[in-house]
Amino acid sequence: MKPAPFEYRRPDTVEEVLHLLAEYGDEAKLLAGGQSLIPTMNFRLAQPAVLIDLNAVKGLDSVDEADDGGLRLGAMVRQAAAERSALVAEKVPLLAETLPFVAHAQIRNRGTIGGNLAHADPRSELPAVMLALGASVRVRGPDGERSIGAGDFFTGFFGTALEEGELLTEVVLPPAVEGGGQAFLEVSRRLGDYAMVGVAASVVCDPAGRCHRASIALLSVGSRPMLAEQASACLVGERPSSAAVLAAGHAAGNKDIDPQADMHASVAYRRHLATVLVRRALTAAFERAGCVMGEGAS
C-alpha cells in the first residue's frame, strides 16, 4: 500500500495553482487535506501524475463574516478549525453540529471544508449541509471567478460542476434568518463511519407560525446528496405538526430518494431510515425555530 510516484508541486498563490492546472490538465490532482485522496493513492486506485498541494497557498484558510451577515469559509479551512470556530457556531450552527460526524478528530485535523465538497462523496455529511442551507461555492478558473449554488454543484457520483482548470476557493453560507431552525441526524454503523442515511434539515417559520421554507437534504441515498422536494412540499405553507413531519418523512423515504443496497443496508432499510430521520430532524429543526408543533394536520 505505497502510492505510485508523482510529481509534487507546492504553489503559494491561487494564480500559481490555476497556472499549474492549466499546464497539467487532467494529469494533475489537487491535494487539500488529502484524507480521501491519499488512502486512494495508497491503494493505488488513484495514480495522479502530478499532485498540486494547496496547503501552502495563502489566503484560503480564513473564516469571515460575510457582508450580508453570512459566513465565508476559505476552501482550505480545516474541518477541525471550523468545528472549533466561535464564528461558525454562531453563524452556522448546523455546520458546527454536523462536523463531529465527519470521520474522526485526526481526520478533521487535516481534512478541509473545500476538499470535502470538491470530493463530492454522496455519503459525505458536508455536501448535504450545504444543500440544506442553500450555500454556494466560489471557484476560480482560467476565465475568472464564478459562484455555483450547492444545488448545481453536486452533479453525480463524485461529480461536481467544477470545470477543468477550476479551483474551489471559498464556501459562502447565507445568514441565519429569524424563525429559522436546523438539525442534522444520521445513522451509521459506527461513530465516524459514512452514514447509511443522514439528513440535514433547515426550516424557516413565518411569524404566524407557518412553515415558510423547508430544505431537507439527504446523504447516502443516491449518487449524490439530494434535496427531498416532495417532503418539503408537505410542509411549506403549513403549520408544522407531527402529522406533517410524518408525512414529510414518508415522502422523503418513499418518493424523493433512490437508494441503492450495499453490504450495510438494503433499499428497504435505507428508505425506512430516511423516513424516520427526516421526521426526527424536522421535529428538532422546528423546535429550534421556536415553532410550536401541532398534533395533526392544521
Partner: peptide, 13 residues
C-alpha cells in the same frame, strides 16, 4: 430490520 420487516436484504450481503 430486514428480518423483522420481511424485506429483502442485499443478495450479496
Amino acid at each position: 430490520f430486514d428480518l423483522v420487516h420481511g424485506t429483502p436484504s442485499d443478495p450479496e450481503a
